[in-house]
Design a binder for these strands. Structure first.
Lengths: 144, 144
DNA sequence: GTAGCTGCAAATCATTTGCATAACC
DNA sequence: GGTTATGCAAATGATTTGCAGCTAC
């Protein structure tokens, strides 16, 4: 239920240690509930504890990924963004090209059609990503 | 019609020069008709003319992108892949996680649903990407 | 001829790794 | 107590940029 607890379980069951750095990074990560870059997360973590290094943030994000609690995305930027994986279903993304904001959505009809397409090629889907890039509601009124 | 011709037009209309390096890079790129990395394209180009540098390949790919004749993708790898943009409609990708092969497809029903979803959020789509990752037909028989 | 190119080497940028010290179990 | 982590600095890999000479128009 609590992702922090899950993370602790993952660490101990893997023979890894639950250090205070890892705990803080994970805590801040799950509290943000957003699509953050390693750098952005590092800045947030630094506010709480400036002694924690960027490298530790990277390493913790990798652990979170391995434990299935975080997912990595490449939204066309040169850096990756990470999002917490909630027990809910898979979802896709609306990405605003103006403000960079990310809105999640899910649509079962689209998923079904994806399966249809894949099987017509004899292809077996493991995962997918659907990203819609454009202008969000808030940015539409603005100049340019 | 001919992408090479379009590229020449783009260059001259932008006050840029149609050097033999650019021509060769573009020629090889369009002949491949695949999703290549800059590095892979560079290797192919080198077979024809080993004096052309990787940097020139990068710069030419950028020009091809700016002219609308190439599109850049990030398929979860750490390097970008580029594909020729044909006058045909937009398409999406099936990416095999075993052999790395990329199969294109298009599906208007999915596109329609995407528009539906977006407008329900007041979002205006500029572009999108849909990528299905999994095992292609050819790799399904193989071990592991 | 001159502005725009090329190739090299060096600079970036995001991310990873080596290593000596420090912290968990 | 010993293995595993941390943080720093340095390495990496992809991509970009500065610059002196080269080339198309």
């Amino acid at each position: 239920l609590d992702p922090l607890l899950k993370f602790s379980c993952y660490l101990s069951s893997s023979g890894l240690k639950a250090t205070k750095q890892r705990q803080l990074v994970a805590e801040v990560f799950f509290r943000l509930e957003d699509h953050v870059s390693a750098e952005a997360l590092y800045r947030k973590v630094s506010e709480q504890d400036p002694s924690i290094g960027l490298v530790t943030v990277y390493r913790t994000l990798r652990l979170l990924g391995e434990s299935g609690l975080a997912r990595e995305h490449r939204f066309g930027e040169n850096s990756s963004r990470f999002e917490p994986v909630l027990p809910s279903a898979h979802h896709d993304h609306l990405i605003c090209t103006r403000c960079g904001n990310v809105q999640e959505f899910e649509n079962p009809k689209i998923e079904n059609l994806q399966e249809e397409v894949a099987s017509s090629y004899g292809f077996q889907i493991e995962t997918h990503r659907l990203e819609l890039y454009g202008v969000c509601k808030g940015c539409q009124g603005e100049s340019q």
